[in-house]
Amino acid sequence: MKFGIMVNEGPYQHQASDTAYQFCRAAIARGHTVQRVFFYHDGVNNASRLTEPPQDDRNVVQRWSKLAEEHGVDLVVCVAAALRRGIKDENLAPGFRISGLGQLVEVGIQADRLVVFGD
């Protein structure tokens, strides 16, 4: 099955991004495809390569980048939400790209299920 994922909250503040990530990993382990993760609202902060969590904490941003690299998951950051919050191409972590809301609607149309994670 093909999944689309939407993440509405930033890393560390809310568990939403963590749960979404664990869901994606479990879906892939089950043989499903995660076509795209769309980051909206404060969720765009998941894409900042400037984040530096302490050594003993999980690295949320790197975790997403690795998922994109290893499993071809398309990580899309909403352009309007990103610009509002200072997320631009120059501080985008590997595997992420900035695009429009059409990418969310498109994955809603193309995927078998769209699952939303937020506050």
């Binding site: 099955m1 999944f3 664990q22 869901f23 990993r25 479990a26 879906a27 382990a29 089950r30 499903h32 078998d112 299920r113 699952v115």
Partner: peptide
């Protein structure tokens, strides 16, 4: 359920 079970429920 674990995360895998979560995925199954959605599917």
């Amino acid at each position: 359920v674990d995360y895998g079970g979560f995925v199954d429920l959605v599917a």
